[in-house]
């Protein structure tokens, strides 16, 4: 899902439009879509069964898990697995993940916003044109392909095994898409507004904060959510750049935990549920924002 395409001249602002629900009643006489319906319901079952299984399993005792039908709800739900998982330092991994995500997303969105503003406002400058093309090319770089030089750089900077080692490359890889999406939004700010503020003697710096920021706030949130999810779920960077157990963010901790307690299925289930919980709660709160965030930069 960490994959996004910007279509030519992508008018990214339209990305949210299809998601905005148009609660128009559909034509009652519309012929039924049997094939789509069948596929839809079938896939629903396929999506839900593993999710259901992992949740109910997390509330079973080990003995209960082996003795009963795996799809039956637990006869006597227990929180024992969660207690066990939390004892394995998951609170710390959670904090690590929060630090890495905020530490990467906030600066990434801030610098991307400034860059996007400069790129839109400056027009013909050769330097900014080159920079912008470079960011666009950056969209095509897969993280996997450059992980070895990143590893080398991090070692040389003596940042190996620190959270900063994950944060810095995460910022770099968030920049291209963020700049693309944000510059599309800033471009939609009417020029007259800039013009009139300039007449009043406002500097570009003032206009950035007083004009562009309030008008592009929804886009900033969208970009932030998308990048946040990407960083939160990233596995490769910590796998390569983190060594000590206490520096692990959640996905890496999850993997290590599974390697250690693989046969304790209920505990594994609890660890998965626990690490997914924050995002699922976020999803419940801001579903539309989150989904439009996922297709940000995607245009159509």
């Amino acid at each position: 899902m960490a994959t996004v395409v910007a279509p030519e001249g992508g008018r990214v602002d339209s990305a949210a439009a299809p998601l905005r629900s148009r609660r128009r009643r559909t034509d009652e006489r519309e012929p039924r879509n049997w094939v789509g319906g069948a596929a839809g319901w079938l896939w629903l079952v396929i999506v839900v069964v593993p999710l259901y299984w992992i949740v109910i399993t997390s509330f079973k005792t080990r003995a209960n898990y082996f003795a009963t039908n795996p799809l039956a709800p637990p006869s006597s739900p227990t929180m024992e697995n969660y207690r066990f998982v939390l004892e394995q330092d998951f609170a710390r991994y959670f904090v690590n993940s929060v630090i890495v995500t905020l530490g990467a997303v906030v600066p990434a969105v801030a610098v991307s916003f400034m860059a996007a503003y400069a790129i839109v406002r400056a027009g013909e400058g050769r330097f900014l044109r080159t920079t912008n093309s470079m960011f666009l090319l950056g969209l095509a770089i897969p993280l996997q392909a450059v992980i070895i030089p990143i590893y080398l750089i991090i070692i040389r900077l003596q940042l190996y095994d620190t959270l900063l080692a994950i944060i810095l490359p995460s910022i770099a890889f968030a920049i291209p898409l963020s700049v693309l999406v944000l510059s599309n939004f800033i471009r939609d700010v009417p020029r007259e507004l800039f013009e009139s503020m300039r007449m009043d003697g406002a500097t570009e710096w003032t206009m950035l904060w007083r004009l562009a920021l309030p008008l592009t706030r929804p886009a900033l949130v969208t970009v932030g959510i998308y990048q946040g999810l990407t960083v939160w779920n990233n596995f490769l960077l910590p796998l390569i750049l983190i060594q000590s157990p206490e520096q692990r963010p959640l996905p890496l901790a999850l993997w290590a935990f599974q390697g250690q307690y693989g046969i304790n299925v209920p505990a594994i289930a609890a660890s998965v549920v626990l690490t997914a919980l924050p995002i699922v709660i976020l999803y419940a709160v801001g579903r539309r924002q989150l989904l439009s965030g996922l297709t940000a930069g995607f245009g159509k």
Binding site: V111, I119, R121, A122, G125, T131, A172, E204
Partner: peptide
């Protein structure tokens, strides 16, 4: 993106704003 912004009134003072992003991107991308 580089469509000339006729009303931009010179592009000197904004150029630097791209620098923080550029530095991080160049270093780690």
């Amino acid at each position: 993106t580089t469509r000339p912004a006729s009303s931009a009134g010179g592009h000197g003072p904004v150029g630097w704003m791209v620098l923080p992003a550029l530095v991080v991107f160049v270093a780690f991308g």
